[in-house]
């Protein structure tokens, strides 16, 4: 178990919602990726969410899949991702979370993977294709190495399931903003996020961070208004890779919107 929850501390210290940008490690290549992450840190990131590129990412949309492909085509491997994480950790002390597909962990070996995370200064790991049903395969090992296991809740989660997810989780809960086609009205979006957040709040004191489909400063603001402790933004930033100037500008807009 992580002795002190770095996300909770960051949330308390800031006193406002956290801005959590997401990019894929190694996108578009190892060197540029480090520059991009530094840009995020310099432009107001309160925590980082970083993806390990995977060949078959069905839980991600087309923008992130394209980022995965760019990274893999540049020759990035799992060892490179850990090298990058160590370099990133040298430059910042904000929480670092990983988003990864389970097969990459399985093939490295679960224990070795979490040990490597610990050595690289990672705070949390969210496995995109590991639901609560399989959580026991990793949670005890993650906690042994001091890595917070993060799980997802959404409008589809029953109260009972939210309770069970909360008990299994540490670090923060990943609240999926909404499901379904894009272009939903902001008032509808706010209602959906608020409902999930309010239900989750009954069962946990962990920060509730909203992600998945937050594509603009306006939507980020909506998540904050709905009570999010953190806002995770991926595709909107990744669309601008490798243009660090543009990424800095997007981060500035998001940072201001989140507060």
């Amino acid at each position: 178990m992580e002795k002190s929850n770095s996300y909770l501390q960051a949330r308390k210290k800031k006193g406002k919602s956290l801005f959590i940008p997401f990019v894929v490690l190694g996108d578009p290549n190892k060197n540029s990726s480090l520059e991009i992450v530094k840009t995020l840190i310099e432009n107001g990131a309160n925590a980082l969410e970083l993806g390990f590129p995977f060949s078959d990412p069905p839980a991600d949309g087309p923008v992130i899949q394209a980022a995965d492909m760019r990274a893999l085509e540049s020759g990035i491997c799992t060892d490179d991702c850990f090298d990058l994480l160590k370099d990133i950790r040298k430059t910042t002390d904000i929480p670092i979370g990983l988003l990864i597909y389970y097969n990459l962990i399985l093939q490295r070996g679960v224990d070795r993977f979490y040990k490597d995370c610990s050595d690289a200064g990672v705070n949390s790991v969210l496995i995109a294709d590991l639901p609560l049903e399989h959580a026991q395969e990793v949670v005890p090992i993650a906690k042994k190495h001091g890595i917070a296991p993060v799980f997802i809740i959404s409008e589809l989660s029953s109260d009972e399931r939210i309770k069970n997810v909360a008990e299994m989780s540490d670090g923060y809960l990943y609240v999926v903003s909404y499901l379904g086609v894009t272009g939903v009205k902001e008032s509808v979006l706010e209602g959906k996020i608020k409902d999930t957040i309010d239900r989750a709040r009954k069962y946990t004191n962990l920060p509730l961070c909203v992600g998945f489909g937050i594509n603009s400063a306006q939507q980020a603001q909506v998540a904050v208004k709905a009570g999010a402790d953190g806002v995770i933004v991926g595709s909107r930033i990744i669309k601008e890779v490798p243009n660090t100037k543009k990424i800095a500008q997007i981060c500035e807009e998001l940072r201001l919107a989140i507060g």
Partner: peptide
């Protein structure tokens, strides 16, 4: 879920949490 559909060590339900309800 009632089971995880396992064939020995194979099978399971390794999907996003969002697909579990359906």
């Amino acid at each position: 879920m009632k089971s995880l559909g396992q064939y020995g060590k194979y099978g399971g339900c390794y999907v996003s949490e969002l697909l579990v309800p359906v």
